[in-house]
Design a protein around this nucleic acid. Structure first.
Lengths: 289, 289
DNA sequence: AGCTCTTATGAATCATTGA
DNA sequence: GTCAATGATTCATAAGAGC
């Protein structure tokens, strides 16, 4: 049975007690600069990289060499300009030893239109992929999508050039063999993710939709692997991981959030007519100075 | 009558002859690092920022204080990692005096195919907005979209397999608040642009589709304003600007492209039964050492 | 003309095989 | 050894062919 571990504390301290090379996937949405001021005291944009480095240093230590770190973040706009702390963070993480493998775009589909005098509604966030080594696990078949409608018409009749590898005439090096596509039902997705935003903010600040951690958990882990969210907030990553039979660890500095997560887990996994839980929840409070 | 000015030469030299504060919009897609090797010699990723700085220095000079600079670019992936020259370029441009106002995402419906052990297809490019001052012209009403398109744009094409392909909530999340928008005819777009790439089954492919410069020309200029593309390539920016009654200047180092553009313009604006053109084309070749 | 059907095309990246 | 060539993957769009 997969285990859920909830730890109350500051992740850069809590993580020091973790074993190195023990985590398969880190997926998190850290407090953005100047956001969630109440919960993290509001990190100033210019201090953001400095604030994050001790955390990512521990993350680098606890991640398995085959593991992946997904950072969901977006720079704010202030006084007419986009802040640069996110791109500075990418550079700093590389210097720290991380490989910058890819940047996925989370395109938010159902936000309401809106605008300011100098900009439109911000409808996308970065999901930046970092790795410890070039040989990381990626289970691409798990996130395949149905092939597009084009295949139906295109594959009805194959011409001569469709049956062999036909190289592009202009020397771009692009070639294809259309006959490879007969009976193909599933294709791989791209690096743009279309998920709706979660609109019902009840007791917690910014959260990502379940699809977001779900997609990355599918792609980068298998059952009984361990997923870590060092800024777990309202616990989305934990609920998704549990449903997908992955072990999970969530760290959160605010005790109220911890209580919220525990209550939600208990609600969800309570056995009927019993006081026991159909789930194993570890939880601890780590003291730190 | 709007004027089209085509100049053959290296833009960092050509631009020196331009008056300062004379351009309303710069929209361009410079050669990406290691791409277009045949035409531009392929700038090495590690030299890219250095190569670009003298150009952007001139661009900063010729742009009006109320003007905007849109840079369409995407970093390549190599040996498992994304290159950092684009984000280093953003930092360098800021140091040069540019304001980094916004980053639009061009999400490509029909991106280049590809799937590798460590990554999926790259389906997006950056359109980075820089300004000279915080008081730039932005005609937001010009790019409004019908509310139908907005609602349907996010919900249409989602029948059948597309529902799964999109992972869309498909209508949920539109709850009660959608009624606020129903009686409005037009709404503002977001900072995610969905355009298909251009492909001809002939030669001469354009770097970006017409929709891309069209959208930014609408948003940042009015009739008789002047649009500049310092890497004009096959001329897309010029044709769009002409159609939209904006003056335009295109600079291109390759004489073949210049000829191509001139021929296309002549074809398009030839008066029937006359040798005259219904268009004023200036063109010059700027010699430089 | 105008419609439908067919086919070529693309700012790509990585592993493998061959020279 | 290194360096070059090859194969795999995708789908919207436009040109061309056919009627």
């Amino acid at each position: 049975m997969s285990k859920v571990n909830i730890i109350c504390g500051d992740c850069k301290e809590v993580l020091k007690n973790f074993q190195e090379n023990s985590i398969d996937l880190i997926v998190t949405s850290p407090p953005y600069a100047d956001r969630r001021i109440k919960t993290y005291g509001g990190i100033k944009p210019e201090d953001y990289v400095q604030w994050f480095m001790p955390v990512s240093d521990e993350l680098l230590r606890v991640l398995k060499p085959t593991g992946t770190f997904i950072l969901n973040i977006k720079e704010k706009a202030e006084n007419g300009e986009r802040h640069i702390y996110v791109i500075e963070l990418i550079l700093a993480l590389r210097k720290q030893g991380w490989l910058w493998t890819e940047e996925f775009i989370w395109s938010k589909k159902n936000c309401y239109p809106g605008k300011w005098p100098n900009r439109f509604r911000d409808a996308w966030e970065r999901c930046i992929q970092f790795n410890k080594s070039k040989k990381f696990h990626m289970y691409q078949d798990e996130v395949m999508i149905p092939v597009g409608n084009w295949a139906e018409g295109r594959l009805k009749n194959l011409s001569g050039t469709d049956k062999i590898r036909d190289n592009s005439k202009n020397g771009s090096g692009f070639g294809k063999n259309i006959s490879n596509w007969l009976d193909r039902k599933w294709v791989y997705p791209s690096n743009v993710l279309n998920f709706a935003t979660v609109c019902n903010n009840k007791n917690h600040s910014a959260a990502f939709p379940e699809e977001l951690p779900e997609w990355f958990i599918k792609l980068f882990t298998k059952e009984n692997d361990t997923v870590l969210d060092p800024f777990v907030g309202s616990g989305t990553t934990l609920f998704v991981a549990k449903r997908m039979k992955r072990n999970s660890i969530g760290i959160e500095i605010m005790p109220e959030y911890i209580e919220l997560i525990k209550n939600k887990l208990k609600d969800k996994y309570k056995k009927p007519n019993l006081f026991e839980l159909a789930i194993e929840i570890e939880d601890e409070i780590v003291e730190y100075k």
